[in-house]
Every structure is written in C-alpha cells, then in structure tokens.
Design a protein around this nucleic acid. Sequence first.
DNA 1: GTGGTCTAGACCACG
DNA 2: GTGGTCTAGACCACG
Lengths: 133, 133, 133, 133
Amino acid sequence: MFLELDMAGDKPIYVQLKEQIIEGIARGSLRPGDDLPSVRALAADIGINLHTVNKVYQQLRQEGYIQIHRSRGVMIHPDGFLKADKTYRTNLKATLRPLIAEAIVHDFSAEEFARLSQEVYEQILTKEGGEDE
Amino acid sequence: MFLELDMAGDKPIYVQLKEQIIEGIARGSLRPGDDLPSVRALAADIGINLHTVNKVYQQLRQEGYIQIHRSRGVMIHPDGFLKADKTYRTNLKATLRPLIAEAIVHDFSAEEFARLSQEVYEQILTKEGGEDE
Amino acid sequence: MFLELDMAGDKPIYVQLKEQIIEGIARGSLRPGDDLPSVRALAADIGINLHTVNKVYQQLRQEGYIQIHRSRGVMIHPDGFLKADKTYRTNLKATLRPLIAEAIVHDFSAEEFARLSQEVYEQILTKEGGEDE
Amino acid sequence: MFLELDMAGDKPIYVQLKEQIIEGIARGSLRPGDDLPSVRALAADIGINLHTVNKVYQQLRQEGYIQIHRSRGVMIHPDGFLKADKTYRTNLKATLRPLIAEAIVHDFSAEEFARLSQEVYEQILTKEGGEDE
DNA sequence: GTGGTCTAGACCACG
DNA sequence: GTGGTCTAGACCACG
C-alpha cells in the first residue's frame, strides 16, 4: 500500500491511517469495489496494533467509505461518491471555522484561501506528496 | 466576554478557548492593543482553572497573537496582522489536506469548497454564531 | 540517571532538569535514539511532580532535542546534532552579550573569555562535575 | 541616557536596566567617576517604579560597579576595572556551562564559540545595537 | 495584583 | 502503561 505513518508526530496513528485511506479513495488509488487487506494483514503489514486498524475500519464503515463482510472481507464502498448532505456541510463549516479565523488574523483573504485550497485539491488529485510541499 | 465553552464535548477546553479568542481578533471584537483579562480573572469568569487559561495564553503568545507583561497583564499584540509566511501556509495546507480529501470523496468540487469557505468568512466577519449554524 | 537537582536554589527545578538533560546529550551520556524515562517514572525517580517533568519534556521536544511518542514514551531525537541556524546564533549572541559586558568591566579580554570557555567545553566533554568546580 | 527597555519581553525590567548600565560601563559611555541620575530622576525619566531603580542600584553597588553617597548621589565606581577573582571566574563558568552544552548539541566547536564571542566583544566595544544583529 | 513555578491528585485517549 | 488534559491550591518574583 501507499501508507506512511509518522509514529513520532502528535497525530494519532489511527487518524493518520484513516486519513490516508480516504485520500487514497479521493485520488483514485482505491476505487469503488476494490478490496482492502484484512485487519490482521494490514496490521502485520505496517506493524501496528490490531485494535488500531480495527478502529479505523469500523469508523470508515460507519461513515460509508467501506463495506465489511464477515467472510468476503473488506472493500471500498461500491457506490462511489458519498452524499454531501446538510450534516456533512455543517460539520465541514464548523471544522473550517477556526482555520479561517486564523487565516483572517494572518491577513489572508477569502480569495487567497480559495487559491490555497485549490492547490491542495490539485496536489491530492495529481498524487503529490503532502507535508513538506 | 463573548466566550461559550462546551465542557462536555470532546474538544479540549483550552482549544475551544484559544479558538474563540482568535476568532474574536479575526472579527475585530478584540483589537490590537486591547487588554485581555488576567489569567485569574478569566479563569474565575468562565469557571475554569487558572492553568487552563495560562496554557492558552502561553500558546497565543508563542504564536504572536498576544503579549504578556509580567505584572501588567495581557494584551492583544499591538502590531495587528500576523505574517502569513511559508511556515504558516505549509501548515495550513497540511491541515486542509485531509478535509479536502474528504470533500473530494463527497463529490465536492474546489469551487463548492471555495463557496463554503466564503460563507464561513462572512459568518465570522459579520459576527454570526458558530458551530450549529 | 545522572541528575542532581538543587531544590533550594533560585534556579527553577524545571530549568535545572532541562539543562542537565541537554548536558547529558552534549557529553554523549544520552545518545540519539536512546530512551528517556517516562514522565511519571522520572518524576517519581527524582521526587518531583509529574507536571514539572512534563514541562521540561515539552520544551525539549519543541526545541528538537527529543521526540515524544504518545504511548511509547520519550527518546532522544534520532537525528543527532541540531542545526545551528541564524536564529540559534542570534539568540546565543543575545544571551552572551550581558555576560561579555560584565567580562569587559572585569578586564577580561576576548582571549581570556575564549580560554575559559574552552575549559568549560572540556569539563563537559570529559564528564567533570559542574557548578562548584 | 541610552536605555531602551522592553516592557513586553520576559526579561524582568530590573535585569534589563542593570545589564544596560553594565554595558554602558563596558563600552566606555559611563566612565569611572561619572555621575548617574538619582533613583528618583532615573525612575521618572524612563517611567518605571522607584523600587525597580533602587533594586538595580543596590545590586550594582554591592557588586562594585557604582558608589552611592547619601548626599552626593550616585556615581560609577572611580577605581575602574573590577577584579576578575576566582569567585568571578567560577560563577562565569557555571553560567556558561548550560550555554556551552547547548552549543555542543548544535555541533558548535569551541573555536566557533570563541569566534562568536569575539563578535559580541566587538559589537559592545564599537557600540553596535544588540538584539537583532 | 500580576504572571511564574510547583505540588497532589484525577480521568481520559491511545495502542 | 503512556502522554494529554484538567482541577484545586500554594508560594514566590516583579513592580
């Protein structure tokens, strides 16, 4: 897989793992219907705790990203895009709010914020590495 | 003050407090040079511990939002806007990355993301209430 | 460990502890990748409060001396030497300035100052005891 | 006078004042036998508390930098250089020790440390401004 | 009166 | 078991 976990950073491992799977879906590396490794296999592969992988899979299932079948294993949800309903939009706005307040104090206009977001969109879709760019 | 903390939620109190002070600066309720309450006064006012407030003040100082005078109290940094340097932009992009990956999977275009950000900008600047709106 | 704290002196405990850990790294007693005791273990070991140790660890982490893994404990930063960038040099010069002004008034030449510094270098690297020696 | 105090910084005002007077002596702006303003006059001049100035003068007197005569006021000690005795050297070494330990971890050799000290010597003696240079 | 430091003790998230 | 967060309460340095 394409996973790279930073065991030292202050972001919890399960959060990193979850984010990277979602980013994999976003950029098309993982496509609707694709198989994911079993909990056990993935945990062994990247050398982390079973509980950690399990927690991630449960959350991804609950949020509609993946399906878990008892016998046939784990796969990316075959329906493709999730729905961007009111709940999603409300949560996103609440999450953005402190970031945008910070941006304002840094004299960052809405246009600049949009431009920077656009850059991130392109980084993800063109599979560019994150962090230090 | 204009503070409203959710003691039950899973967002730490000190993070909420910090975010609300930054938003206060962003929307102009707190202006460069304004006094902030002393650590003890604010703690008593909102019914939390002195150390929690102190932690917030120390972080805000370190990030350039406020100045702390040893025996004359605390004030919003008189220089106004902080600089949006490369470090700031890099961090912001890293923070946005998982949000935007999620957005993509929700079939949210860069334009829609920009429009929603714009709404948040306006909410903050026109002093509209946050979270559940 | 090699720690000896003066609880009575006017130098704060957390400063003493921080300095001694840095000196331990400097003279090679603590090497890149070495484990440090957990916050609680060290606090119990030297008979001080957990928060005091935690403050030291947080500062050391922020300055790049150590890494803190959420549930695997603390270790000396594996990358070895820190970079002596412009910020570091500027801070060091600002710190030295009052010491050197004093030295001048004591008729201490730059050469004598260098010689005395050299002695301290050797004391640290050859593990000689500090303070009153 | 040539004093510039940073009321916001975390260095206590009395320490800043004391350091600047000593630096004034070091670079020859204040010469043996020169008069200093009275406690009252200096406090009024720079807008700080009487106690603060008084504390500084008492410490400077005790360390041999100035003389205080009840009726004839305050003056730089007429004898010129202070003696760099064993006590002075021991204290200086103890003060330098944590700075040099830090320097070692930053891969700073004794020679580089001496060179940087030399720069500070020259800055003081040629009356260059401090802090940001 | 202000922030700085320190203690003692508690519950929680992570893995 | 580890660090993260929070509380309650104390004494001190500074001005």
